[in-house]
């Protein structure tokens, strides 16, 4: 027993010293700003910036390939610190939050099949999904698994929910969704048309109670002309024009349009 401990201990120590000496002798002069920036970055290695992990982004910032506010997760606080290290002025990061554009939970959407297989949306997407809607949420939670910040969960009815306060806007869920129904939207925009079905109205009605039927009510109601129909079959909000007035929410006959503002106030009261 004691020999075993000594053998491994001594050989470990010997190699440790050897490596220590080697590290000192072959030290590479690295820009000290890189390690400083790594310290400031969140360290989640989420890849939301498009670089391989936080150290990759730090090297890119110092190398000039990325702006100082490239980290959407860290937001303004991190951007300011990075800018200080780099000695430049930071531009404000527009905080973004993920929005799931589907409300087709099991009690709302028609179910046409049972799925027994890999618990992964990409696998299910290959088979066409279990719901009637060919555009909607597959409900297996690949986006929830992709979230590194615990900002998503599956509702009991099988639709992912974003916890807006926790969402950092890294975009991991956006990449994970094979149906592309998650998008990053400026956090101050709170009115959303939660549907991505391009099918025509009567068809949508058949398989989903909350799907957009492109009745144009919201398009007509919007005082800022922020809503238009995409391909004539799906209403979409131009977020650059929307001011969260919520008029469209009350006008929508199928309740596809949702305001997160209302929900939050309700939760408070």
């Amino acid at each position: 027993m004691i020999e075993a401990i000594l053998t491994l201990g001594i050989s470990g120590l010997a190699f440790g010293v050897l490596l220590g000496v080697a590290a000192r002798k072959f030290r590479v002069e690295q820009d000290p700003r890189i390690s400083k920036i790594i310290e400031v970055l969140p360290g989640a290695n989420c890849g939301g910036c498009g670089f391989p992990g936080c150290s990759g982004l730090a090297a890119a910032i110092v190398g000039g390939q990325a702006p100082v506010n490239a980290c959407t997760v860290g937001g303004n606080a991190v951007a300011e610190k990075v800018a200080e290290i780099m000695g430049v002025q930071a531009l404000a990061v527009a905080a973004k939050v993920a929005v799931v554009y589907c409300q087709g939970s099991l009690d709302v959407a028609e179910k046409k099949a049972e799925y027994v297989g890999i618990e992964d949306c990409r696998a299910l997407d290959q088979l066409g999904g279990v719901k009637g809607c060919p555009y909607g949420c597959l409900g297996l939670g690949s986006c929830v698994k992709a979230c590194k910040f615990g900002a998503m969960y599956m509702s009991p009815q099988g639709i992912p929910v974003v916890i807006r306060e926790k969402c950092t806007g890294c975009g991991a869920c956006v990449k994970a969704c094979p149906r592309k129904i998650i998008e990053l939207v400026p956090a101050d925009k709170q009115v959303h048309i939660l549907c991505r079905s391009y099918d025509k109205g009567p068809q949508v009605r058949k398989y989903c109670k909350l799907g957009c039927i492109a009745c144009q009510a919201c398009v007509r109601a919007c005082p800022l002309k922020a809503i238009s129909t995409d391909r004539g079959t799906l209403a979409r909000i131009d977020y650059s024009l929307c001011d969260n007035c919520e008029i469209c929410v009350s006008k929508c006959p199928v309740k596809t349009i949702v305001s997160y503002k209302v929900r939050e106030e309700k939760a408070v009261s």
Binding site: L8, S11, F15, L19, F26
Partner: peptide
């Protein structure tokens, strides 16, 4: 493995 890992580390540093 200890020996091998040490040499790999050495190569990496070098």
């Amino acid at each position: 493995i200890l020996v091998i890992a040490s040499f790999v580390q050495l190569v990496e540093i070098f």
